[in-house]
Amino acid sequence: MMKIFQKTVVVISLTVSSINAFAQEDLLSLLDSVETVKTHEKVIATFKTSKVINMQSTETVKAKTMDFRVTHRFGNIGAESGGGAHTLYGFDNSTDICISFDFGITDNLTLGVGRSKQKELIDGLVKYRILSQTTDNHIPVSMAFYGDMSYNPQEGSQFYSGMAATADFKHNDIHRFAYTSQLIIARKFGSRFSMELVPTFQHRNFVLANINPENGAAESNDLFSVGGGFRLKITRRMAIIADYYYIFSKYRTNNTVSPFYNPLAIGLEIETGGHVFHLNFTNASGIIENNYIPNTTDSWLKGGYKFGFNISRVFNIGRKKH
């Protein structure tokens, strides 16, 4: 009898103590125990727009919005590269101007069209966000595929200029296309610093059969390069941005006859709410990848850098449902 009584006391006291523990518990800690399914939250604003400066970023245009972009590069600043006081340090010239419209089909898929002053290039782009970095590092990086196809509609005499005359060579519209494929891998470290790495493959349907006299390497249709870029936030609305491409091309290495350089850009990003401005300096000779990666002939060391700006303005083109 005594034993049974003891047992009962134990049962009751256990139950009571469990109730007490329950009642005294912070209600929110209860919530934490319930939320067993942890959400892998996506990291936001790795970059502020779809471009770092010259380089594409992992950012896409969100669904039902359109990104209207104006990209402008003035002339070279240094006198050695056609700048100097007589052109007001390049402000009298424009190396390239590009107006483009990028549409967010879904949050991860962007399609865009653009038109550049240089070479009259018309281009169409597709960007697909494959991965989004999460705050809990479940996915440590963001990744996007970028593809761009450009068409050069210049006069035949301009497009084929520099080509040695050959009787059996037929002009063909297909020559005028060039393609860029990139895998963009980005990571945001903390809330201020983001960087990305961009392996790039390009193919141009037509190139001049030039040869680098120093090493005998010929210009090739295919071109490999790798890009790197970063964004460093310095205030809530300003950041320092930079990007650079290293191009793997024997033809472009120490070419004394027609020198080529790796494009480098540094700039300041200012976000004003609706617009994102990039004020930058770069030696890149064009704006779209199919142009500035293979064709940059300006050198930072010879004053071949120019002032430029990118303006991005996002418009809503449909109501988002909650």
Binding site: I44, A45, T65, S191, R236, V314, N316, R319, K320, H322
Partner: peptide
């Protein structure tokens, strides 16, 4: 309603990362 507003809210006002 606007994705840009959402980004600004999280990044500049609520500072959701912090």
């Amino acid at each position: 309603e606007k994705p840009l507003m959402q980004e600004h809210f999280n990044e500049n006002y609520a500072e959701s990362e912090k």
